[in-house]
Design a protein around this nucleic acid. Structure first.
Lengths: 253, 253
DNA sequence: TTACTATACTTGTTTAAACAAGTCAACCAG
DNA sequence: CTGGTTGACTTGTTTAAACAAGTATAGTAA
């Protein structure tokens, strides 16, 4: 695959088109509230098939950059937003999020011990009763202030060599980099819960008595649930973004 | 379009395949943790093209029912979950959510007045300064208990005839049914905020001093922002689901 | 046994073509 | 002027075909 005067053959052509369009929207090249060039126009510009253009556009729809309407066109509805702690639909580790938002962060391991899933743990995490796990408590400091309390259950079978030392660093770097594990899907539930004794002890709660709780089930590439993490966030640093699309086929069939 | 022994021609073929596969997964017809039939097998069964099967499957991926892996297959990772108040990526009105979860609900309009967007409102809602709006405060009761406080700003231009009476009923039924307005995109932000004086006055807060706050920007089919709603939920009835997929092309380009 | 290779699968990406369906403006008949 | 039709656009759905790339297994050569 050679470059030819800026024209190259990326692994994913649609990803290239997607990022070009995205940049144009972000930079205001396409006026907000108006239509983007039609699919046929974009096909000519990028010299690709219609499907490839459409895949790029549907990504932008998912992200709330544009919306489409049959017979009319693709409308730019971009509004610049502050880089949030969380963006919906994308898996990111705490470290990755921190880097993206440019905050100074640190992680402390408060507790590290093997354990076996009993009935209660099983119901909460989704691991079968009797499964061998690691239980991990971590505090995340943001700009020096302890603001996130993590409870993690990790499948021992997937990482028998895991030590407290490793958990001090980036867990995901270890899993993906060293163990070559691939994470594909993560199921998250967001709730708001009353702060516990532990939360008050370890976090800088101020006058708040609640936290944003993100419960996370992570699956590896074999479809095996290997991590359950409950992240308890101080309200002041929690923010979650989501773009929803009204589906006409909700009511069908 | 005639039915022929159960075989029919739906408007969206992939939606049919999607819902059949979904039902099979939910009913346990496909064992959890194992692979679904391959694309080629499904093509034969549904007598359709590969693309159509793939579209159906990618919907299931988005919903966290299955995950795919190149060279391997489509793995069933379904876990039954309680019907939650909110499901990510789907726009639903309060009434629709209530019906789905089977709760007895009511809506009271506490305040209804025209207003004009000043600088502060503009920053919060995304409406331009000087825009004519309706401002609306509503309380939602769940099983008789006041648990949600809604602040809404509605674009007057889109619904000049709106009255307090109409707002007492289902706003979305009015907009979609009577005005034939089509809602396409909704941008949501979830945060946790300290309860205000107003919250304590109107809601049954108990010992909680925080709420789950869902800020909602809704666009109609012309790409015009016509509604901003801030929903302030009592923690006990707030729950939000999300399925994330780790994208390899995050790092590319 | 061990390590490599061929091969027969799997999903991922791209192209091309056709038709369906929604939108809008220009046109025409009344 | 009014109302309906036509036609030229737009996006939405489906098909067919080809190749790329990842996975697992069976067979082969060392």
């Amino acid at each position: 695959m050679f470059e030819q005067g800026g024209v190259f053959t990326p692994r994913q052509k649609f990803a290239h088109i997607y990022s070009v369009l995205k940049k144009r929207i972000e930079s205001g090249e396409y006026p907000v509230g108006q239509l983007l060039p039609s699919e046929n126009t974009l096909i000519v510009e990028f010299s690709c098939s219609r499907n490839t253009v459409r895949r790029a556009i549907s990504e932008l729809v998912r992200e709330g950059y544009v919306q489409t309407r049959q017979g009319w066109g693709v409308c730019n509805i971009f509004q610049p937003i502050e880089p949030s702690s969380y963006t919906m639909g994308v898996i990111e580790s705490f470290r990755e999020t921190s880097n993206r938002t440019g905050q100074k962060t640190a992680t402390r391991v408060v507790r590290f011990e093997p354990c076996i899933a009993d009935r209660k743990i099983s119901v909460q995490t989704g691991f079968a009763v009797g499964t061998e796990l690691f239980y991990l408590q971590r505090i995340h400091d943001v700009n020096g202030i302890p603001l996130i309390f993590n409870h993690s259950y990790l499948l021992k079978e997937c990482m028998p060599q895991l030590t407290r030392k490793i958990a001090e660093g980036s867990l995901y770097e270890y899993l993906e980099g060293t163990l070559h594990m691939t994470i594909i899907t993560s199921k998250r539930t967001i709730t708001v819960e009353m702060a516990t004794q532990l939360d008050f002890e370890w976090l800088e709660m101020g006058s708040y008595n609640c936290l944003a709780v993100v419960s996370n089930q992570v699956y590896n590439s074999d479809g095996v649930l290997f991590e359950y993490t409950q992240s308890r966030h101080h309200p002041q640093i929690f923010r979650f973004q989501d773009n929803a699309i009204r589906r006409s086929h909700n009511t069908k069939e």
